[in-house]
């Protein structure tokens, strides 16, 4: 017997399924046809089945079912817990970019009217620099500075939300890396599921795409770290052992990502041993 979406077909004839797209979709979940056992099938069977009178009707019913399935599938994908985290962290990184570009431009503009504005001022933190620039600018200029300040406050708010959400969605990765960097890792991998299926060595170089490909193509030295460079143990490690620390951290992250995907809760005993290993990675040789 062979099962199709519209019914079962065997030598004695066929039994059509009854019901709308939702019922058909549910039925379909139980059917698997592996290519080895696939029997070429003719849409005419569905006519014999008295499921549809002609091809037009056959395609129409099939399309109804497929639209239902596609929409359900899209919704299911977007409901996954990491989908929003991904957009949040990408928005955050883009906010940074936008605000930096705008600030740079505003600085150049400000310098034209203030010949005394030398490099020494450029080194000031943004929070001090912006109010200073606002004094004496044109109304439009002041408005732009205000917008940059608004962006900065939106960024702070968003950053908090990202950290919270990351603690919720990827608790183990967040415990090792901090919420923000963990979220970036998920974003770079594409989804938590993809991340959880990556080997440690891939996680180690996530975010170092250019260096990795130039290594594969042209034989330049391989990158030691991608996003995980942002972890203090990696960027504070002496250069000779940095690769080693990155490797240990990445290996532990691979496990953490799997815990996050499949256990979906914090595993304190794992975090403790992993943290100890990461802390010691650069020391003993």
């Amino acid at each position: 017997m062979q099962s199709y979406w519209f019914g079962d077909v065997d030598e004695n004839g066929c039994t059509p399924y009854r019901g709308g797209p939702a019922a058909l979709a549910k039925r379909l979940e139980t059917i698997r046809i592996f290519p080895g056992s696939f029997v070429p099938f003719d849409w005419n069977d569905s006519v014999k089945c008295s499921f549809t009178p002609d091809r037009e009707e056959y395609i129409r019913k099939l399309r109804d079912l497929c639209f239902y399935l596609a929409e359900a599938g899209i919704t299911r994908q977007y409901e996954s817990r990491d989908a929003e985290l991904l957009q949040m962290v990408r928005t955050l990184d883009q906010l940074d970019e936008v605000s930096n570009v705008l600030t740079e431009r505003a600085l150049e503009w400000h310098r034209i009217n203030n010949p005394g504005f030398s490099r020494k001022y450029m080194r000031l933190p943004k929070q001090k620099l912006l109010p200073m620039m606002k004094r004496g600018g044109s109304p439009a200029f002041r408005q732009i500075i205000n917008e940059i300040e608004n962006l900065a406050s939106a960024r702070t708010a968003l950053m908090k939300e990202v950290s919270w959400r990351a603690d919720e969605v990827v608790p183990n990765c967040s415990a090792l890396l901090g919420g923000l960097v963990a979220a970036r890792l998920v974003s770079q991998a594409g989804s938590l599921q993809t991340l959880s299926r990556l080997p440690g060595s891939s996680i180690q170089v996530l975010g170092a795409r250019t260096a990795l490909f130039s290594h594969m193509r042209g034989g330049t030295p391989p990158p030691k770290h991608g996003i995980i460079f942002q972890h203090r143990r990696v960027h504070n490690a002496p250069k000779e052992v940095r690769g080693k620390v990155a490797r240990v951290l990445a290996a532990k992250l691979a496990i953490a990502a799997r815990l996050d995907q499949y256990r979906q809760e914090l595993a304190p005993e794992f975090i403790e041993t992993a943290q100890a290993m990461i802390d010691n990675a650069g020391c003993a040789t």
């Binding site: 379909l28 698997r32 696939f38 099938f41």
Partner: peptide, 11 residues
């Protein structure tokens, strides 16, 4: 994974 959509296809 053609086995997932095979029941919906024709030749």
């Amino acid at each position: 994974q053609p086995e997932r959509y095979a029941p919906l296809l024709e030749m």
